[in-house]
Design a protein around this nucleic acid. Structure first.
Length: 439
DNA sequence: ACAGGACCTCGACA
DNA sequence: ATGTCGAGGTCCT
């Protein structure tokens, strides 16, 4: 999720290679996960914790709307959280009975609080108008730690402690019981002070400083380990659009439907147990998963037979090296996929997944000798990761995602052009053109 | 420790 | 109209 607070393509140092025009002043750009879609300009819809959400943001706030489950068997009312309308944006809610509209067309919930989460880097979060029980925990933590977290973040050592305000034993089932704003705060890891981290990385890395000015607000999502693991198993030797459609097929065929919104059905990611049957490999092959069908089926079986889902979640409590090597024992999980799971769902902020893009970035800007390397060997893989950990510190994985995002074709047009680095930019443009041609 | 190849599928491109 | 290539890797030799 990119926060466009200060840099959107209007400022002087933004270069519009593709004459790309923003559709909306505060568009959160592509989330680098396969489960969110932009349903209307600036508004993203997706499934999280077995419920459908719409989210969007303004400069300071993250807005959200949660849809009730398709069939809530337990009879409890699913939270129907109101949002503050943006520019009279009208959201059609499936079950909309608890809302009324004022004359501006803004939706307001009878008898209750406005929900908005301030995304302004956690510690300055004061705008939550009526915190729920779950939210209070974060706020207490935040206010208590305010000084120390600022201080430690200056040294790039920000605080594993902040992450512990998320209960690391929470499985998906536990998460579903939380208040919606608590779920989102956890998912976007809003208690991690991003701007302090950016300052730290920028102070140590000129290339980061240059690139990151156009890519503020890039956060690592705290995703469910099961969903994340199987999604990344699909990613091997594959392209993004096909990965997304494969994840979608997994959900539609093996996950339960959670809601119908705007005439579309939405499905939860299937539990591991839904993927263990012997028949699954063939079924997936017929759906076009190729050799990954076996990886998925085998890994599902390995987890349920040799371990448990709790074991997978429990890797959050182990250290990075242990968690990674445990993951790599699974079928279809090599160093890169293991690092992705570590970083994006197991709280291993120092994990740096090295794929072909990161390899190229490292070769271009950080480790020139890589230009001559023919393939990404285990040794080089570790060397690249260690280099970035050394340079960026304990949140190296978060820093890496900023450069990775900037390297994606769809974001190239946002890169800054500075006179002093013209040759380099020309190279980037050439590279960009090359990719445009191929794809 | 490293290089090389197979592996599924599907667009894009020649 | 067909063939080739490569995409956010992994596994095996």
């Amino acid at each position: 999720l990119i926060n466009h607070k200060s840099h959107y393509p209007t400022t002087t140092h933004t270069h519009n290679i593709n004459h790309h025009t923003p559709k909306h002043p505060y568009i959160p750009q592509t989330p680098l996960t396969h489960r969110w879609k932009e349903c209307s300009p600036g508004i993203w819809i997706g499934v999280l914790c077995d419920r459908v959400w719409k989210i969007w943001q303004t400069e300071t706030d993250l807005h959200f709307q949660v849809y009730p489950s398709w069939n809530a068997q337990d009879g409890t009312k699913t939270e129907d959280v109101p949002v503050r309308g943006t520019e009279g944006e009208c959201i059609n809610t499936a079950t909309d009975t608890s809302y009324s509209e004022n004359q501006l067309g803004r939706r307001k919930r009878k008898q209750s609080s406005t929900k908005e989460i301030n995304v302004n880097d956690g510690i300055s979060s004061t705008k939550i108008s009526k915190p729920s029980k779950h939210k209070i925990r974060f706020l207490d933590k935040l206010t208590e730690d305010k000084d120390s977290s600022v201080k430690s973040a200056e040294f790039g050592t920000q605080v594993k402690e902040e992450i512990t305000c998320q209960d690391s034993e929470q499985t998906l089932e536990d998460m579903k019981a939380l208040a919606p704003d608590c779920i989102l705060r956890d998912y976007f890891q809003l208690d991690v002070n991003l701007s302090n981290l950016y300052k730290h990385w920028s102070s140590r890395d000129a290339n980061f400083r240059n690139v990151s000015s156009s890519f503020e607000g890039v956060r690592i999502l705290r995703q469910d380990p099961v969903e994340n693991l199987f999604s990344f198993i699909c990613s091997s030797n594959n392209n993004i659009s096909r990965i997304s459609s494969m994840v979608e097929k997994l959900c539609e065929n093996y996950g339960k439907m959670v809601a119908e919104v705007d005439g579309k059905y939405y499905y939860a990611f299937p539990p591991v147990t839904a993927l263990v049957d012997d028949s699954v490999e063939n079924e997936l092959r017929n759906m076009g998963f190729g050799y990954r069908a076996k990886y998925i089926n085998t890994t599902a079986r390995m987890i349920t037979r040799d371990h448990s889902v709790e074991w997978l979640h429990g890797l959050r409590k182990r250290n990075y090296e242990e968690a990674k090597s445990e993951l790599m024992k699974l079928c279809g999980v090599g160093a890169k996929v293991a690092d992705c799971v570590c970083l994006m769902s197991l709280d291993k902020t120092e994990s740096v997944p090295v794929d072909t893009h990161v390899w190229q970035i490292a070769a271009r800007h950080y480790i020139p000798k890589l230009q001559h390397s023919k393939s990404l060997t285990d040794k080089l893989y570790k060397e690249i990761g260690d280099h970035f950990r050394e340079l960026w510190g304990p949140y190296a994985g978060w820093a890496h995602s900023v450069l990775f995002t900037a390297d994606l074709k769809q974001f190239k047009s946002l890169l800054p052009v500075k006179v002093g680095s013209l040759p380099e930019i020309l190279y980037v443009q050439a590279d960009n053109c090359a990719r445009e041609n191929k794809n």
